[in-house]
Write a protein that binds this DNA or RNA. Sequence first.
DNA 1: AATCGGTTTCAAACCGCTTTGGATGGCATA
DNA 2: TATGCCATCCAAAGCGGTTTGAAACCGATT
Lengths: 347, 347
Amino acid sequence: MNLKELAAKLGLSPTTVSRALNGYPEVNESTRERVMAAAKRHNYRPNTRAIRLATGRAFAIGHVIPLASRHEIVNPIFADFIAGAGETYSRNGYDMVLSVVPDENEEDAYRDLKARGSVDGMILHAPLMNDPRIALLHDVGLPFVVHGRATGADLPYSWVDVNNRRAFLRATEFLLDLGHTRIGLVNGLEHMDFAIRRRSGYADALTARGITPDPALMSSDEMTEVSGYRAAGRMLDLPYPPTALLAASMISGMGARRAVEERGMEMGRDISIIIHDDDLSYMKNGEDVPIFTATRSSVREAGRLAAEMLLGLVADSAMGPQTRMLEAELIIGQSTGPAPRPAIPKG
Amino acid sequence: MNLKELAAKLGLSPTTVSRALNGYPEVNESTRERVMAAAKRHNYRPNTRAIRLATGRAFAIGHVIPLASRHEIVNPIFADFIAGAGETYSRNGYDMVLSVVPDENEEDAYRDLKARGSVDGMILHAPLMNDPRIALLHDVGLPFVVHGRATGADLPYSWVDVNNRRAFLRATEFLLDLGHTRIGLVNGLEHMDFAIRRRSGYADALTARGITPDPALMSSDEMTEVSGYRAAGRMLDLPYPPTALLAASMISGMGARRAVEERGMEMGRDISIIIHDDDLSYMKNGEDVPIFTATRSSVREAGRLAAEMLLGLVADSAMGPQTRMLEAELIIGQSTGPAPRPAIPKG
DNA sequence: AATCGGTTTCAAACCGCTTTGGATGGCATA
DNA sequence: TATGCCATCCAAAGCGGTTTGAAACCGATT
């Protein structure tokens, strides 16, 4: 059942039927009701493909997901962001199209999405320092929103981000207040912008208390269980080990915990751990009682917000760049406690 | 740059240009080369919206993701499956459209995708026992592939699945061979088909050795860290606790480990744990040395296979239902060992 | 020279909707 | 009665491709 058939059944022109269904004013109310009723009765749904061609709009938002080397993105955090964003899209009648491509084709993927007219806007994931994709997307000319920020990007752009710097600053201060002075950072990959901001928050907090950040206590790697485990292990085996750790995610935190427990230490007593908690549906930081003390900010909510922002930009192309900064809460759990008596160098 | 403009530049008709680009035989080879070159030079990309309308095909595959109650799906496993499938789609010039909807709208979501012509086929995720969606998708009439199987579905359908029953059967036998007789099962939600199959593999292995499965040693819940922790904790606190556990995923396994370590026990010595390892990119079961002994099967690979199968069905609608059973490997890690001397009931 | 089969090209219809630019009719106003 | 203005409806022209049916051209055959 298409528009023409429906119009024929009603003895009206396709024009009028189309207008009636789309709420245009130049159609008699009684006619409109008749049309609406007939549409419902015949279970008429306009063909999206035709609408898309006729309007020149895709009613879809694109997410490009590079594989391989920067597969930073195939991670649980991504699933939650997508869930949040996708929810917003379907509520607004938009599709979400995911383009999963090898790293080297990423640029093409954005251009393709635009050139082939598959989407009306895009979300840029996991921005790097001086991320070239910002300029690329400007060049491509579709509205876009960045999940995160890209230090060094000189062009203006819309973003939704957590205040990573402040979160890690506060977490570090919290540990300092508990008497810890040897604090390790199990960071994400530091070409990722968020990781840089986190490190600067951490370092600034230390410096402000007269402590020089010790390179041996800073690691940077993917946020997997295994690398959390290894990074924490290396630090714990230092002659002068840390009494507290900051971990980049729930997952690296679990790796760190494994390293801690393997050494017969107890979390919260022998060593304090604070993680950044993205509040993942499938990786909750405990239920009533948090497992880890954490800086928490829901990435799913970030997905929702980014999607809303983008739909706004798509609707009103005159709108300038929007930004939204989210603050993480500091959640006190069982993994932190006062610093144990000053550690004595081993060996 | 559209087809008409390109044709004008070449002094050819749109017909010929279209045919040249699409590899039709009725065009002179030298003309084809000229067209190809011009297309590349002017960076011509056919407008997808127009192709879709003209051909009546969407060149897209749909995945419906229910939120809320059955958010079983917003989990790390999903991200990896998507990555695998998405990879296949983009290699074949297909888009992946994700429809994230509240549970109660799931049925509509499938019908909409079809009625509006947004996709050429769909993947059905996380099938339940007697899943009504199988009949629904038959009714909708688009090709589809199920990731998993749905016990009780009487209609034929295409699927890609791991042999969950055999995996858990083998894992249980492995533990039995090590002398364990009290073996706990930390299962996923048992309205999910895969969870049922796993339990039957577990139970059958026990029964075959003359052990009656003990309800107190079987739990069923979401595959989160917290529920793994709680389920394992409950079993360990039993008067006659298990000496081995089977966990449904890496994540619930980590929860189980937390419960174990919290009780001062050592994994692999005081208690053996085997998990099912979906080989997630972001949740690797160790690197050289596996953390857990595990039944392993890559869900990402499953995504690739399901996508390939579906594209095949889309291309040839006459093709009957296809099926593909994957076998899990048993990976020996550090989390298993011989059963400790027979446990003495506590208290 | 006329006919023919094969190759190559093209004009035009079509996919199903939106949207522009009238046309029509009714009613109030001059 | 003629005029103008609304309100309502419609025909037709897109949107940018694909595809059908036919035309043009070619050398080869009669």
